[in-house]
Amino acid sequence: MTSTALRVYVRNPTLERIGQIDDYTSLTVIPRYNAIGSFVLEISADSGKTNLLAEGNGLIIRTADGTLVDSGPIRTVDWSRSTGDSGAGKLTVAGLSDTEILARYTCWPAPDSDIGSQADAVYKVSAVVAETAMRTLVNVNAGPGALAARKNALLTLAADGTRGPTITRQLNQFDSLLTILQDIANAAGLGFRVVQAGGALQLQVYEPTDRSGTARFAFDFGNLTDANYSTTPPTCTRAVVVAGGQTSPRVCATYDRADPLFPGLTVEQFVDLTGVDTAAADLTAQMDQAAEEALTSGAGRGTLAISPIDIPNLQYGRDYQVGDTVSAKVRDSWLIDVVREVTLSCTASGGTTVKAAVGSSDGDGVVDRIYKYLAQVKKDVGRLKTRKAA
């Protein structure tokens, strides 16, 4: 194994470290911002370490200097052999990041009551700081504060840093816990993940770090091998929010957000708040919050994929992480946005390569910066054509 190769450790179902895999042939790990990451490891079936790689165990993956890349459970162990293979063939081990634990649970309208007592149709978050709301949702639905039958004994919560804005929203009964956390975090500008910390799986909420002044990538810096960007149009530029209508009078409102690349495009999306009591004092706040999330989720997308090269003064894991804001030079302009995911590919003999996806796959509250940049380019080209025609 080279000095720059990723370190892989195996844990058992109770999170105890039981060994190291130092003879794998290849490893690809993809940590993702506010989403479930993944990993795939290949190893010779002749290895004496294959007995460690069983479903139910998990992997802890670190950089050469010990920085945690990701951790998570093994989901599949597949064996294969072809006529060209020597020995007993190979094992392909695949798994997910520990953040997947959040996808196993739903948000109960009355999380402190058993399933036979779920009389309410909604769970309400009222004027609470975003991080506190996220921690509470995890705590009462899956964490230490959940019902005994729902509590995950391995799941803990990092200390509450009271990060993010104050939010007010109403959750429909049995909404996905992971999806709700993504909606809140992306609208609040926060990051979250679940990783192994000691002998527990810990929910961590954090404010992403702006490293755009120090983590800068460009071909003329010698730390970039390729780059490309792509865009997709918006799916929502007008949120049609409808509250009440069941047990209280209906209230309807529209919220518009023009798309910079398609300024004349109107795409309406229905936002269902019909379970909300329109006599509630915080009705406006709930409607505003729901519209903000719909417009953010439905904003036009721009994504930049870059292949950085680790150099002595700028290395992944040490100088920037998933969720950090970095700078990349595309043509003649500097683009600044969030590292949405990173693909780390490693062979035991060849070291580690990094490919980063930069750009707001979930929007940045208005529309991501790359998308804005391309809209400006389109305007500039339009002006140039107009001048030539004149």
Rank of each mutant, 00 (worst) to 15 (best):
A94H: 07
L53H: 06
G58W: 00
D85E: 14
A148R: 07
R62I: 02
A133F: 08
L52A: 05
Y9W: 06
L53K: 07
V140G: 03
S117G: 10
S86F: 11
G95P: 07
E131F: 05
D85G: 12
L15Y: 10
P13G: 08
W79D: 11
S26T: 14
R32E: 10
T83C: 05
L41G: 12
Y24L: 00
C107R: 12
W79R: 03
V77T: 08
R104S: 07
N51C: 01
S26Y: 10
S117N: 14
K49Y: 11
N51F: 00
G66L: 03
S44W: 04
D78E: 15
N141L: 05
I18S: 01
I18Q: 00
S38T: 14
V40K: 14
I36E: 15
P109F: 01
V69F: 04
R62T: 15
L59D: 07
E42S: 12
V122L: 10
G84D: 15
D78V: 10
D78Y: 02
I30C: 09
W108D: 11
S86M: 09
L91A: 01
E131T: 06
A88Y: 12
T2Q: 13
I74R: 07
G72Q: 01
V40N: 13
S82E: 15
S82T: 15
T25Q: 13
V77L: 02
D112T: 12
A119K: 11
A5C: 10
N139R: 07
L68Q: 10
S80P: 09
G19E: 06
K90W: 08
L91P: 05
L59Y: 04
R17Q: 13
A127N: 14
T106A: 08
Y105K: 01
N139D: 15
I115E: 15
K49Q: 14
L27V: 08
D85C: 04
N141E: 05
Y9G: 05
